[in-house]
């Protein structure tokens, strides 16, 4: 076993500090150490996107990053996007448009979609399909996921306009 490292993360706005082996993968840090079980494990080989979180403004598959690499960074998971009293428009839209079935891909899917809409607030269907291609869903066939993201985009743009 190697020396443990002192690691500091900001997860969903909360500072976390702990000692961990360098080989600890970020997904396990989140799920097992910090009990943040929204991000899931679907493949462990960086293909499925179930483990997607946002790290310093990038969508990242947390099964393919060591916690040590994330030392000093800010991480947002599905839990940080919205809760019972303040759902994120994407969370609302996935519910409204049946954008999920078993729910296993959903946290990664929604987390990735927040970033997609940040970069492209008015995506076409094609842009959504391309921009979400790092996230696999086995249940929905994607059609309602696309619909949910489109609906959330409209909603978010409307509230942005209203705020201006």
């Amino acid at each position: 076993m190697s020396n443990k490292m002192h690691i500091k993360l900001n997860v969903n706005g909360k500072e976390e500090e702990f000692l961990a082996e360098p080989r600890e993968l970020l997904i396990y840090t989140l799920r097992e150490r910090l009990n943040i079980t929204g991000p899931h494990i679907g493949c462990e080989t960086s293909h499925c996107g179930a483990c997607t979180v946002t790290i310093d403004g990038k969508s990242v598959k947390s099964c393919t990053m060591f916690a040590a690499q994330a030392d000093g960074k800010s991480i947002t998971t599905i839990e940080g996007l919205g809760g019972p009293d303040n759902l994120h428009p994407l969370q609302e839209a996935f519910k409204e448009h049946h954008g999920l079935q078993c729910g296993y891909c959903t946290p990664g899917m929604i987390t990735r979609a927040t970033k997609l809409l940040e970069e492209n607030p008015n995506p076409t269907e094609e842009e959504i399909r391309f921009g979400m291609a790092g996230n696999i869903c086995r249940c929905t066939g994607y059609q309602n996921i696309v619909k949910s993201i489109q609906a959330a985009a409209v909603e978010m743009n409307a509230s942005k306009e209203a705020a201006e």
């Binding site: 839990e79 019972p84 996935f94 296993y104 959903t106």
Partner: peptide, 18 residues
Amino acid sequence: KRVEDARFTQGKGNYVDD
């Protein structure tokens, strides 16, 4: 609308690995 979705969309599902 599905009653399951509130927990799934908030990352609060309870799967065996959780």
